[in-house]
Amino acid sequence: MAGSSTVLEDSSLLSRLDRALVPLERFMALLSGLAVFVLMCLAVYSVSGRKFFNSPLPGYVDLIEAAMPFIAFLGIAYVQRNGGHIRMDIVVGALKGRALWLFELISTLLILLLIVMLVWGSWAHFDRSFDLSRPMWSRDSSIDIGLPIWPSKLVVPVAFSVLVLRLLLQIWGFGRALVLGLDRPVAVPLIQSIEEQARAEAEALEEDA
């Protein structure tokens, strides 16, 4: 099971687009991390409020549930860019050259198919909860404090749309590699051997150990 990989860069248009998208993806991932941090602070606030001041945070559960989509989806394109979503690469890991790019292209096209469908479906899910004519535009509200749910539903199609952009770039990258028979194409995650991967994992901890 491989998690990480490397992405090569050069001065081509594709690579420039790849690098142009990274700051947005990374910023969204950072927002997701910050949402985890907020979640942690919320719990401390809720516990101490209840324990020491008899004033629990109203709607604590509602707030957590509203925060979870921000945590779970915002970083999705960033992880895809670096090839971080888990897969089993025993078979593709053994392939080289055009055969490898063909398999990568097929699976990336399939992912695109799924995500485009999910942009549609998750937008519909958002749309059912959203009504401009209502107070707080809300047509779906939380159980405890009546928080509108549409903002956290909107996160999903937004994050998936950025992922669509990322997938289009990767399809371009793999397609180009397939047609030109490239060895080390840019803008796509290249499989690291499991040894390289372990070394990268170890190096990540180097400064801190």
Binding site: R50, N54, P56, P58, G59, Y60, V61, I143, D144
Partner: peptide
């Protein structure tokens, strides 16, 4: 939760979120 929670709140109780 909901209206019952609000009723208790009105008499000074503290509705607390747990599933």
């Amino acid at each position: 939760t909901g209206g019952i929670g609000k009723a208790f709140e009105a008499v000074g109780a503290v509705p607390t979120s747990v599933t």
